[in-house]
Amino acid sequence: MGFLSEIKHYLRVYRRYLSTSASQAMSFRTSFVLLIIMDLLFTGSSYFKISFIYDHIEVIDHWVRHQLMFFVTFMLALNALNTTLLSTNFWMFSDDLKTGNLDYILLKPVSSIYIVFFRYIKPSGIPNIILTHSLLIYFGMQNNLGFIEWLMLPFLIVLSFTLYALIQFVISCSMFWLIEGLGINFLRLQMQELARWPDFIFSKYLRTVFMSAIPILLVGSGPVHFIFDRSYWYLIPLMLLLCFILYYLLHFIWNRGLTHYDSASS
């Protein structure tokens, strides 16, 4: 009972986040339009990049054009979710730490991790979510996905997004220890850059690191490998396991961070 009402409470808060964010976006209408254009430019250039390369070659490693296209779209869809639902929060977090506004967040009767990482939503990302997910269906059809794969796809997106989010949360926690948190956001962006490509383009050593210890490559390559080849099934429980580990790690680091924050403020 307590758990259910707790969930309801958090959902109600989230609905307010949606409306405050919408209200905020509407007060900057030019930015809103420009943001949509920026997303489209990014999505477009990502496709042309792959397409132009495949004009001259047949395969990259063992993937043909429509396979890599599916992978790229999967990552673009995740990124669209990420920019819409999360990314603003990472930038605001560094501000809140600097200005001490985190104090107010700590006072609220809601988990501070929740407020810090979910408070800001960017409605301008919604068109891009729709576009990339439609494209994902299109390239899914090009790859002749079976019934089971289609059924698994939404679940895989949620799983990947969860893993993706947790990795970014953990990285962002390091801002507690840095005076200028901006750099960490760039580190996060560089992680994203790595994740935009399938794991097999990287050397064996790096692949191992980025598929386990810092599982950023697993975010896209895990589910897509599994969709193309069922023998990669073990990547899915691995992702689940890592989600659990990262979840606990996040809480651990967060609490350490708060202790540090407390000693830094007087």
């Binding site: 808060v13 986040y17 001490g100 107010y104």
Partner: peptide, 25 residues
């Protein structure tokens, strides 16, 4: 805190109130 603000800067205060309403149930 007189030096810090808990209201959202770019939206009307009522929106912030409504959010706080949900925080505190």
């Amino acid at each position: 805190m007189g030096q810090k603000s808990q209201l959202w800067w770019d939206i009307p205060a009522l929106d912030s109130f409504l959010l706080l309403q949900k925080y505190y149930e």
